[in-house]
C-alpha cells in the first residue's frame, strides 16, 4: 500500500516543519487521478500519527478532479478516471489535465 509511505511523508514533513507545535488539523490535496486512495490515507494516518505531534489531528482531504477535453467532439467535462470516455460522444480520445495533485496544503497548529 503506497498510501502508507506517502502518509509517513505527510507526518514527517509536518512534524519537522512545525517543530514542537501540536498539530490539530492537516489539509491535503489528493487529486482523483493521483493514484492514491484517500480512505487508505485516512486509515494509515491514525497509525502513523500516533505518538507524534500529529496525533489526534483532523485530516481534511481535498480531491480535485481531472479536467477532460474530448478531441473528437470538443466536449469538456470533469473526471475521476485516468482513461475516461467522453461524456457526450463516447470517444476514448480524450485529453486529461490536472487531478494528479499530491500536496500538503496547510496545517493548523496550537
Amino acid at each position: 500500500m503506497h498510501e502508507l509511505s506517502i502518509t509517513q511523508t505527510v507526518v514527517t514533513t509536518v512534524t519537522q516543519r512545525m517543530q514542537d507545535a501540536r498539530v490539530c488539523r492537516i489539509r491535503l490535496e489528493v487529486g482523483r487521478l493521483s493514484g492514491l486512495v484517500p480512505d487508505a490515507v485516512r486509515f494509515c494516518f491514525e497509525m502513523v500519527a500516533a505518538g507524534t505531534t500529529c496525533e489526534g489531528a483532523a485530516l481534511e482531504i481535498d480531491e480535485p478532479p481531472g479536467r477532460a477535453v474530448c478531441r473528437t467532439c470538443g466536449a469538456a467535462f470533469e473526471t475521476g478516471e485516468v482513461l475516461p470516455l467522453c461524456d457526450d460522444c463516447g470517444s476514448a480520445d480524450v485529453e486529461v489535465q490536472g487531478g494528479r495533485e499530491l500536496r500538503i496544503r496547510e496545517v493548523e497548529v496550537v
Binding site: T13, R17, I104, E106, V107, V110
Partner: peptide, 17 residues
C-alpha cells in the same frame, strides 16, 4: 475565531523528496 491556533500554508509536494 479558534483561539490559540494558527494556520500555516505549507504547499509541499508529497513526491518531491
Amino acid at each position: 475565531a479558534e483561539p490559540d491556533t494558527r494556520t500555516v500554508a505549507l504547499e509541499v509536494d508529497l513526491l518531491a523528496k
